[in-house]
Structure formats: C-alpha cells, structure tokens
C-alpha cells in the first residue's frame, strides 16, 4: 500500500506547529497503525530528519498511552479499538490520512503527537480512590456485592485513561473519564463513605483543569476504546446533585 500521511509536527510546547505531508510506500495491511509510523520513523532517522514523536507503550490496547486523532476520529475508524490495535487493512491504497494530537487546553502538546495528560492524574488525586490504607482492610468476603453492581462497576472501571473522550468531545469535556471513576467506586459498598465528597472534589478539579462542560452529545462513548457506558455521566450528575442538596 502507498499512503500520504499529513502529520502534525510541533517541536515543543512553545513551537506553533504545522501539518506536514509524508509519502510512504510498502505499507503492509498486516501492520498496526503504530508499526506503520515506526516504518516512517526509521526512514526519517536515516534521512537525517526528526522522527515523529508519538506516545505508545503496551501496544495491546490496555495501557492507555497511545492516542492520535486519525482523520478526525480519536483512535481512528475502527470501533472500540485503540490506535495500537488498529491495523492498516482498514485503509486503502492511496489513502490520505490526517494524524493529529488530542486537542484540548487541558492536554497541552509536548511534542508532535505527544500531549500531557497529567490533568487526569490530578482529577484522580482529588478523590478518585477509596481511603483504605494498607493493612486496614477487613476480610474480603465480609462484604458481599450484588453481581449486577459488581458488573456495572467493572464496566466503568475498564477505563484506560487514554483521553479519547476529551479529544472527541466538541467541548473537550472530561466528563466520561471522571464519571467512569465516580461510577466504579459509587456502585460498590467500599466507595460509599466518600461517595458525595468524592464527586464534588473531582468535578471541581475537572473544571479547574480547563476541560469543557458536558452537553450530552455522546461523542465520548462513541469513540471510547473500552465502550464506557454513557449512563456513567448521568450517575455522576445524580451524585453531584445529591451532594449539592446537602
């Protein structure tokens, strides 16, 4: 396959950045999208050019490190798939592919396609945990959890923190990410004591980071590689309103 790649290049946070086109041939349909970029980078190095920086680590769809907005869609065209698991057979010979970083004020570009997602860590710091110091735990079987609650909590807990929800949201909102943690902990008995305090603190932090608000468009869920359910956002809303009523 022969492709034209239009890639966002930005030397560092201070640089303005621009789209640059690259031609690439000999792309095998069996390559993953990131392997295709590896091939491009190997060539750029030998040509004495700066290779394209992009985040990646596990390359099996679970660490949440890879990103990339591909032709306007975070993680590209395949549903419920991270960029690292997207394969080139989803593209056609001669395609022009636009590759951009996550775009959000809360995710400043570090270099090329790499952004800083530490805002997510700070949202978790604000309250995304159960305060259970090591050693203080009661016997694990002491608290039964209804299977359905456990399953729903699990569905929310599968969030990989990649930030595709923010990238896709027309408002660059971090609601799905925040709501996934609120829902995971809020559905379990262990999460109850801090439940309402948690939602207030996490939402405040989310706003302070400069994310936009949620307008319920559902774009986040549509691109989420783990399919975090849209209802998590409503559960967050319910908890916040309950907390606000005192």
């Amino acid at each position: 396959m022969k492709l034209t790649l239009k890639i966002w290049r930005q030397k560092n946070a201070a640089d303005e950045g621009r789209m640059v086109s690259y031609e690439i041939d000999d792309v095998s349909p069996d390559m993953s999208f990131l392997e295709m970029l590896d091939v491009l980078n190997e060539r750029l190095i030998l040509d004495g050019e700066d290779p394209v920086a992009f985040d990646h680590d596990c390359r099996e769809g679970i660490c949440g490190m890879c990103s990339l907005v591909i032709d306007g869609t975070p993680h590209g065209p395949e549903k419920a798939t991270t960029t690292c698991q997207l394969h080139m057979r989803k593209f056609k010979d001669g395609d022009v592919i636009t590759i951009e970083p996550w775009r959000a004020r809360a995710f400043p570009v570090v270099k090329d396609l790499v952004v800083d997602r530490s805002a997510f860590d700070r949202i978790i710091q604000a309250g995304g945990y159960v305060s259970a110091p090591t050693g203080s735990a009661p016997e694990a079987a002491a608290i039964p959890v209804p299977k359905e609650d456990a399953n729903k909590a699990f569905d929310a807990a599968t969030c990989i923190g990649c930030g595709a929800c923010v990238a896709a949201c027309p408002n660059a909102s971090a609601m799905l990410f925040t709501a996934a943690k609120i829902t995971h902990l809020g559905l379990l008995p262990q999460g109850q004591p801090e439940r309402y305090d948690r939602v207030v603190k996490m939402v405040d932090q989310m706003d302070a980071e400069g994310f936009g608000g949620c307008t319920n468009t559902g774009e986040c869920t549509a691109v989420c590689p783990k399919g975090i359910p849209f209802e998590t956002i409503s559960r967050l809303n319910a908890d916040l309103l309950k907390a606000s009523r005192g």
């Binding site: 239009k6 636009t98 951009e100 775009r103 959000a104 004020r105 809360a106 408002n171 660059a172 936009g212």
Partner: peptide
C-alpha cells in the same frame, strides 16, 4: 467549551 479547545482539528 471554547476555551477548552484553543486549537481546532485540521481534519
């Protein structure tokens, strides 16, 4: 929302 995305997508 507008402030949250200062740079828009090219695609």
């Amino acid at each position: 929302a507008r402030q949250a995305r200062p740079v828009r997508y090219a695609a």
